[in-house]
Write a protein that binds this DNA or RNA. Structure first.
Lengths: 235, 235
DNA sequence: AATAAACTGTCGCCAAATAGACAATTGGAT
DNA sequence: ATCCAATTGTCTATTTGGCGACAGTTTATT
């Protein structure tokens, strides 16, 4: 795959862009691209590991099924996000389902490529450990927030996360607050992420709209005031 | 520190006991022990990293404060548990408070020792990556359960976790079901772990007692039937 | 332009959980 | 033996959110 073509996309990842340029180059030249049609699974929970991925274009939904058969959405992966590293590093089965919500293009680093790479250059290990650490920190933060925030606070938090991309914010970072931001997501989907109901999400969104923070459209939400959303996502 | 003295304790960790014996030995001889009096903090959220720890004796509470000042208990660490690896590997601040609930003895592997160890033997990296992966898997599981289980299910799950130790269960593993198990914990503390209220926890415990699964005492709970608790912790 | 499908807005009812209050019980300390 | 602090048990009132129902709106398709 051509380096210059992929680079702008890959650079959107905080993790990737912090890698030494040689490693970036190695990853791109070693990796292969893969197409995935809308509605198809990239993998299911319990699948054997096949590689580490970066989403180049499209949209992936990451979720699990409860025993009752309800889908619990963990998150959507955005262009530039890396994922699949856990099974990659411990060899155990996938933790979640990953489904293409749109046609996707992925950059794939296979097991074998990965092992060879690290065998040759063990000094690269710390970089991949940082990727894992970032994942743990994000999930810890999620647990805290699920427990301590009101539903309204959780919703504000999610809207921001979806707008800003899913990577961990450096503590105290200032959110880019330039103008509006249009999110394409249904209230039903939001409810599945919050493990709440569509009706309740609708009610809260209407409140936020009345407060002038956002505007609700058909299948879309326009964020007006990210900084006020941020302050609300602490209550 | 003497290898033979610590070994039985350290072996309680699934992770540690899976390490090659030379690495086990290196860790014990490199590490230093540290005492921590009851009520003292080992570290607070946001602290700079100083090392990787294993709890040798005593009991540590891991928690966070909400903005409202309420303590959210993530878990109790049991003898044999390793922790503190995240900050160790990415160099960023601690994610939680860690407080001694009893006098504690800890085995500490300092930053410097750790870095020297890995610089000399980069083939050890995968072992530490497995430790991190285990942490991510445990937290993902926690997120799923918080979202999908009823409060009763969550409570059953926690009681089992407290009884069995906190390390990730291999999928489908059979719980040691030999006889009774006495947990020393107040209903108030359980409520803080579940992010629920004391009254509600009390009500559910009484239900479980009526069903013959356990018996409630002052500051203690005796588990009678772990396998039935397990089946309840899936609803 | 007509139709179907997906999504939103809003009822009202019900179950679950919170929170305050207070009595009763237990265990440790003096 | 007595007292105190911590913990438990159990009431209430109140809040929150889930869920069914259904009408209205938007978008895509033909």
């Amino acid at each position: 795959m051509e380096f210059d073509l992929l680079l702008p996309t890959l650079q959107q990842s905080q993790w990737f862009s912090s890698l030494p340029i040689e490693l970036q180059q190695t990853i791109v030249t070693t990796g292969t691209t893969k197409q995935l049609k809308q509605g198809h699974y990239l993998h299911r929970k319990g699948d054997k590991v096949d590689g580490l991925y970066c989403l180049i274009s499209g949209k992936l939904r990451v979720s699990n099924l409860t025993l009752a058969g309800q889908e619990l959405i963990l998150t959507w992966l955005q262009v530039g996000n890396w994922f699949g590293e856990i099974s990659m590093f411990d060899g155990l089965p996938r933790t979640h389902d990953a489904i293409a919500e749109q046609d996707c293009i992925l950059l794939k680093l296979s097991n074998q490529d990965f092992e060879q790479l690290l065998a040759k250059q063990p000094n690269l290990y710390p970089h991949f450990m940082r990727l894992l650490c970032q994942r743990v920190r994000t999930t810890f933060k999620l647990i805290d927030e699920m427990a301590s925030l009101s539903l309204k606070g959780q919703l504000c938090r999610r809207l921001l996360l979806l707008a800003e991309g899913l990577e961990l914010w450096p503590t105290g970072s200032i959110i880019s607050d330039a103008g509006l931001f249009k999110l394409t997501i249904s209230q039903e989907s939001l409810a599945l992420m919050l493990h709440s109901s569509r009706q309740t999400v609708n009610k809260i969104l209407k409140e936020l709209q009345a407060e002038g923070l956002l505007k609700v459209h058909y299948g879309q939400i326009t964020l007006f005031d990210k900084s006020r959303l941020l302050s609300l996502s602490q209550v």
